[in-house]
Amino acid sequence: MAIRLKEKRILSFILVAVALLALFVFSINRGSMQVSYGELFRGLFFEENETVSIIFDLRFPRIIIAVLSGAALAVSGVLFQAVLKNPLADPGIIGISSGAGFISALIVAYAPIWFFFTPVFAFLGGMLACVLVYGLSYKNGFSPLRIILVGVAVNAVFTGLSSAFDSMSGQNYTDASELLNANISMKTWEDVRLLAGYVVIGLVLAMRIAGSCNLLALEDKTVRSLGVNVTVLRVMVSAVAVLLASITTAVAGAISFVGLIVPHMGRLLVGNEHKVLIPFSALLGAFIMLLADTTGRLIAYPYEIAPAVIMSVVGGPVFILLLKRSDKPYGG
């Protein structure tokens, strides 16, 4: 049985990695500018080609940001579901992304000189939303239903505050609105460098605490009997989850349901062991996010649909299905 599970895990990793690579290559050459793959290869590595240079500067950053965002959001979802013992937890649904997005939009609109510190402010906004959700939903323990309901309410408040930017004019307000709408079409290599540094740090930290996530699946008294401070452990895991979700929101915008769908798919394919689930979710999340972005570019060409919209259309029904099928106790 263990050998069969190991083989299933290896096969799942290989299939998702190959699918991601194939989608990456496919997505590169889809749009108003197209070249043969041979010409693309030569233009990237051997000879100067103006069309390839344009594709490299405009399309590559967008694709890489989609990949990094998907990986970060998926792992954030895994961590939140572990710390809350709630299979329906997602940084977008419970308000973490909207809190980070609102603070990021404030910086872009009113203090653009601090633009490069936006990820830091986004993290503070995400932590604020996290504290609100945890604080308002705690009542003699955490109830999965209360967490979701409070999270939806916190999400609605921050989303309502953020929607004000859509009705304002001026370049700074327009930039803030594009951030909130998760428009990644005009991202640059500078955005890639900004996002990549924080995401890599977050993913490394997530792998370091993977064993702690396994402990959180146990009863609190059992964990305490092992000499572990459960409260400190939850805060630590939550901080990493907020970091990943907030940094992604600061660069790519608020995107929901990636952190909900991917962990469920991951558990079906590789099981509940977080040392395996976390890297697999990062890989699968990158594929799902890039697929959403590529679909949004092609489905209504020459117009584009933001990946956040695609994920909402797909994720909404999935969320309802999971809610109906969940056998968790929703009392209190």
Rank of each mutant, 00 (worst) to 15 (best):
Ala2Asn: 15
Lys6Thr: 08
Lys8Pro: 04
Ala19Tyr: 07
Leu21Glu: 13
Leu21Tyr: 13
Leu23Val: 00
Ser32Gly: 15
Ser32Arg: 15
Met33Arg: 15
Met33Asn: 13
Ser36Val: 00
Arg42Ser: 03
Glu50Pro: 06
Arg59Gln: 12
Ile64His: 09
Ala66Lys: 08
Ala66Tyr: 11
Ala66Thr: 08
Gly70Cys: 01
Val75Lys: 03
Gly77Pro: 01
Leu79Asn: 00
Lys85Thr: 01
Gly99Ala: 05
Ala100Cys: 10
Ala105Ser: 09
Leu106Gly: 01
Ile107Gly: 01
Ala109Thr: 13
Ala109Tyr: 04
Tyr110Leu: 15
Trp114His: 06
Phe115Cys: 00
Phe116Leu: 11
Val120Gly: 03
Phe123Tyr: 15
Gly125Met: 07
Gly125Thr: 05
Val131Gln: 09
Leu132Ser: 14
Val133Glu: 08
Tyr138Gln: 09
Asn140Lys: 14
Asn140Gly: 15
Phe142Leu: 14
Phe142Tyr: 13
Arg146Val: 01
Ala153Pro: 03
Thr159Asn: 13
Leu161His: 06
Phe165Gln: 05
Asp166Ala: 14
Leu179Cys: 05
Leu179Met: 10
Leu180Cys: 08
Met186Tyr: 14
Met186Asn: 14
Lys187Phe: 10
Val192Asn: 07
Arg193Asp: 06
Leu195Ile: 11
Tyr198Arg: 06
Val199Ile: 12
Ile209Glu: 00
Gly211Met: 10
Gly211Ala: 07
Ser212Arg: 02
Asn214Ile: 02
Leu218Cys: 08
Asp220Tyr: 12
Ser225Tyr: 11
Gly227Asn: 10
Val237Asp: 00
Val240Lys: 00
Val240Tyr: 00
Ala241Thr: 00
Val242Trp: 02
Leu244Gln: 04
Thr248Val: 09
Ala250Ile: 05
Ala250Lys: 03
Val251Asp: 02
Phe257Ser: 08
Phe257His: 10
Met265Ala: 15
Leu269Glu: 00
Val276Gly: 08
Val276Thr: 15
Val276Glu: 12
Pro279Gly: 12
Ser281Phe: 01
Leu283His: 13
Gly285Asp: 01
Ala286Asn: 09
Leu298Pro: 05
Tyr303Trp: 12
Ile305Asn: 12
Val309Ile: 15
Ile310Trp: 00
Val314Cys: 05
Pro317Trp: 13
Phe319Asn: 07
Lys328Ile: 13
Pro329Trp: 08
Gly331Ile: 12
Gly332Lys: 12
